[in-house]
Design a protein around this nucleic acid. Structure first.
Lengths: 338, 338
DNA sequence: TTGTATGCGTTATCAT
DNA sequence: ATGATAACGCATACAA
């Protein structure tokens, strides 16, 4: 009898068949360097023959740590979360790791307690924190306390490299607005994201950078703030398009608001991009599916998530993983030369 | 010393302090009925005092089953997956369960092997299968073989109630098309989903049902097939709008294709809904953010996912959970009376 | 109603 | 370089 009653061979079965001790098998599994080559081969042969796979639950108990990596997020946008999940999966594919997901509520007063019990119980190997909740320093500190390694994803560097994968929103927006300037636009409106979001602040800085380096003065009458929703995008668009002189282009800090601006423009009979050029940010599904298709900025989300996951699970590979990523300007049809 | 070295109290600590055996504590935890009330209270007091929480990894090892529920999907659309995750979470909140996510590739030849190793290794408590991969009977059978309970989510009943949460797409589409008929439309085009998708077939049946009961004849010249993408929606729209006489309304089997139809209509100078009414299906983000906002059909995704999760984790509550759900017609602005 | 002994599958300690 | 034995924290069988 080579196997246990429920069918799955255990380390004991391997040890018995290979004529060695459990510990030796364990050493083979964990690639211990101090091992006779012959012994290793013999054991590996038996493992292959039996189709033996170590039991993660038993390892978790013995090691006091689970082979689970967690994704903690506060629903920034569906596509981002899914992109991140894909990215993580591509990193843990063919490993023993699995991905557990934990949506939380940023505004809930017991969010931290919530995360604490979660981390405490599940004893995760590591967690990935998504924006905007990744901007919460108390959360990162909590992970530290509980001894779970973490990586934060964000729009700017806000932690050491081992704990961070960051895009550079400031630079990306500067590039996008610079592109508008390159098309001849000078009167360029700006729709900011909500106060308190680091991404919003960074994108605003990028806007100013671009105007500064082109020698264009800031004009508060063509700047507005929204909270990343379609509706606030409409409101912002109405305000900006009521200014005189009217802007010939508008950069909105995310796609939903850009769609709102587009809507507002159309409502007063303007055509895009003939009368108004628009650029958004995020490259969500709407960007490609509204009319005209929206020129926008895209984070390399999957690459970022993959790098983050590797930082979490593989300390040696981790060193080679970048902490900074450049976003791409996706040129579609919502921009025209002045 | 009431606690183990790493800080967390174990069942032994509780037993010692309460002056009972481990087994008694275990009985308290598992709510064994045969227990002296005094003993129980005493133990519960100690548990509360220590803040003791059973270690999931140890339980998993002893019970040969993890307290993880899995979500297996093939990326239908991001918002659906996220909605499902939220729904599951609302069911497992305040329990010891966690959610592990596994995206798979429907078309990959080793998809089944992939799932097998995943299930095999992680020894999940149960899994939720999302469409379209939930339509794969071999997958359900695999779960059965491996002894992991499963629930499938789908557009029609394709398994026993314990294994199923289903919307009724046929009825929902019939209602939507009936709504168009109620608005006076008789020449109603149809954009089908891709062959092989159960949802596509059901939606087509609903379309025919509605026409039949209104005594309208089927006309193949105003029917087309797409594969649920924006681009194929455009192509289908072009075909349908080239028919003569032209349809006054079009039902598309999902929102992306509906957006494509809208695009096609606009390209040839038609206005929506003045010249053409359009209804989609899914209520994805684009539906609300294109212009005009799209009338569409929405699955009660969170409710379905929550019911599914309860079916998985709680056999007694499971009996009270519905297996059939009705979709809602979300009336927006893409439909006008003839 | 409660306790004892044993098992779950792995890793760690400390020998040899 | 390898092995015997004891953890890891809980549950189950069987007694008492």
């Amino acid at each position: 009898m080579a196997r246990a009653k429920d069918g799955k061979p255990t380390i004991n079965d391997v040890a018995r068949l290979a004529g060695v001790s459990k510990k030796t098998v364990s050493r083979v599994i964990n690639r211990s360097p101090l091992l006779n080559a012959q012994t290793r081969e013999k054991v590996e042969a038996v493992i292959a023959e039996l189709g033996y796979v170590p039991n993660p639950q038993a390892r978790a108990l013995a090691l006091r740590r689970n082979f689970l990596i967690g994704l903690i997020h506060d629903n920034p946008n569906a596509q981002m979360v899914l992109g991140v999940q894909e990215g993580i999966l591509s990193a843990i594919r063919d490993t023993e790791f699995a991905l557990v997901v934990r949506p939380v509520n940023r505004r809930s007063p017991d969010m931290l307690d919530d995360v604490r019990t979660f981390l405490d119980q599940q004893r995760l190997f590591g967690v990935l924190l998504l924006p905007p909740i990744s901007e919460n320093d108390a959360l990162a500190q909590l992970c530290d306390e509980l001894g779970v390694t973490y990586v934060r994803m964000g729009s700017v560097r806000l932690d050491e490299d081992v704990h961070m994968v960051a895009s550079n929103d400031r630079e990306a927006v500067a590039k996008a607005v610079g592109y508008l300037i390159g098309q001849g636009h000078r009167r360029i409106g700006f729709v900011a994201g909500p106060e308190g979001f680091r991404s919003a602040a960074e994108r605003a800085l990028g806007y100013r950078d671009a105007l500064d380096s082109a020698g264009v003065a800031i004009d508060e009458t063509i700047m507005a703030e929204g909270n990343y929703t379609f509706e606030t995008g409409i409101a912002a668009g109405e305000k900006l398009l009521a200014a005189s002189p009217r802007p010939s282009a508008i950069f909105a800090s995310n796609d939903e608001m850009a769609a709102g601006v587009l809507h507002a423009a159309r409502s007063i009979g303007m055509s895009v991009p003939e009368d108004l050029s628009i650029i958004g940010f995020d490259d969500t599904a709407i960007a490609a599916h509204i009319w005209p298709p929206l020129t926008t900025v895209r984070w390399p989300i999957q690459a970022m998530a993959k790098a983050a996951a590797i930082k979490l699970i593989d300390p040696v590979e981790a060193r080679d993983q970048p902490s900074h990523f450049l976003s791409d300007l996706i040129e579609r049809a919502s921009v025209a030369p002045l």
